[in-house]
Structures are given as C-alpha cells and as structure tokens.
C-alpha cells in the first residue's frame, strides 16, 4: 500500500480521535466536539514538531 506520510498521519489521527471520543464521552455532541478537537490537535502538533525539526535536517 502506497500512502504518503501525511495520509498515514491523517488515518492514524482520525482512528485514535474517534475511539478516544467514544471511550470518554457520553453524548453524541460531546463525542463529535472531542473527536474534532483531538483530530486537529494531532495534526497541528505533528506538523508543528515537524517544522521545529526542519532546521536540523540541513
């Protein structure tokens, strides 16, 4: 299977966010809010750390 790193990260973040939301929240509204928040947090933190490490790759 050929996936680039970003696609892999999106799949990972989506799956983990959904499971965490359903494990920790009771109502559907809370779950959606938590899943969206966790998904975006995964992406933002990963991309942020990637850019922080970028100078060390040169």
């Amino acid at each position: 299977m050929i996936l680039n790193h970003f696609q892999t990260m999106v799949i990972f973040a989506l799956a983990v966010s959904l499971v965490f939301a359903f494990l920790s929240k009771n109502t559907m509204t809370e779950r959606v809010r938590y899943a969206v928040w966790a998904f975006l947090a995964f992406l933002v933190v990963a991309i942020g750390i990637g850019w922080l490490m970028y100078p060390f790759s040169h």
Binding site: M1, L3, T8, I11, F12, A15, V16, L18, V19, F22
Partner: peptide
C-alpha cells in the same frame, strides 16, 4: 451498537493499513 461500529472500523483500519504498509 454505535460504539461497536466505531471501534471495529477504527481498529480494523489501523490494523489493516499497518499490515499493508
């Protein structure tokens, strides 16, 4: 039911993608 569907889809997706990679 809703938890069952979400847990299966999430775990199956991660496991299958992990194996296919």
């Amino acid at each position: 039911w809703d938890k069952a569907v979400v847990y299966f889809l999430a775990v199956a997706t991660l496991a299958l993608v992990g194996l296919w990679m």
